[in-house]
Amino acid sequence: MTSSSPTASLHEAGPALIASNGDSLREAFGKALSAMADEFPKLVVLDADIAGGTGVHHFRKSHPERFVQFGIAEQNMMAAAGGMAAVGLVPVVTTFAVFCLRAIEQARLSLCYARRNAKIVASHPGLDVGPDGGSAQALEDLAAFRAIPGMTVISPADATEMALATRAILEFDGPVYMRTGRSPAPRLFGDDHRFEIGKGQVLRDGTDLTIIACGAEVARALAAHDLLAADGISARIVNMPTIKPIDSALVARCSRETGAIVTAEDHNIHGGLGGAVAEALAATHPCPVEFVGVKDMFGASGEPEELAHHYEIAAPHIAEAAKRVMKRK
C-alpha cells in the first residue's frame, strides 16, 4: 500500500452517478420543458426526488421558482397537482411510470374526474428500464391510465417527437399521461417531423400488412420492415404516439388497405396500444391482428436490448408476428 490511499481520491471524486443519458427521451423531455418554460408562464414542475432520473433537473436549474419538490410521496404530489391546477397553474407531475401507478387513484379523482389541466410525465416505462429489474418496469401504465375517462395517453418514439409532444401537451387543455424513456434511443425523425395529439403517421408504406408501434418499438418496427422486405414482404409501418384517443381513421384505413395488423409496444399485450387498436378495428373494419408485447408477465433485470429479445419484442419477433398475421388473412 502506498501512502496515498486510492479510496481517498475516489471519495473526493464522488461516485459515478448513472444519470439520464443524452440520447434518451427523458433528457429530451427535460430539455424541452426547460426551453419552453418562458412561453408557458403557468407551467410548474413537480418532482418526487428523482429529477436527475426524469430529466427535469434541467428545469430545476433553469426555473427553480417553478420547480416544486414533494419528496418521496407520489400520492400527495399527484393530488396536489390537482390543487395547483385548480388555482390556475399548469402542473407537470414527473416520476417513474411505476410510481404513477401508485398514485393512479389520485390521478383519477383529483386530476381527471375534476378535469384539471395537469400533465403526468412518466419516465422509466417498460423493459426499456433495463437493469433495475421487474419491480421498476411499468408494463401496465398505458392500459391503466387509458381506462380513466378523459385521460389522453401518449408515448413518443424519439427525442425529436418527445420535444414536439412536450409542446403539444402544454398547449392542450386537459389531463395527459405521457411516457418518456430511460435508455438511449435512436433518432428516427428529422426537424420536419410533426406531432399532433390523436394522429398517427405512416413511416413506411406497404401493402401486405401494417405494423403499428409506439415508443421504443417504433425503431424495432422499422428494423422489422427491413427484415420483412428481405423476404419479399411489403410491411407498412405506422408510428402511433397517441394511444388515447387512438387514430381510428388511420387504423381502419390500414385494415382496409393491407388486411392485417401487428401491434408492437413495450408494455403488457393486454390493454395498451394493442388493445386500443383492436377496439378501433372492432368498431370499424376488423382484420386479423397479432400483438407484440410482454405476454402478461413481469420483467427482469438485464440490458434493454437483451430484455427485448428475451421477452420477444425485438425486431425479429415483430417480423415473425407479421408472417403469422399474413397467414390469417
Binding site: 417553478r66 396536489a80 390537482g82 390543487g83 395547483m84 385548480a86 388555482v87 390556475g88 379523482l109 375534476a114
Partner: peptide, 23 residues
Amino acid sequence: TSTGSLGQGISVAVGMALGLRIQ
C-alpha cells in the same frame, strides 16, 4: 374540487396553497 376518496383533499389543499403562493 371533487373529493370522496379519503386523504386526497388535504393534498389538493396543499397544492392550492402552494399554487396561490407561487402566484
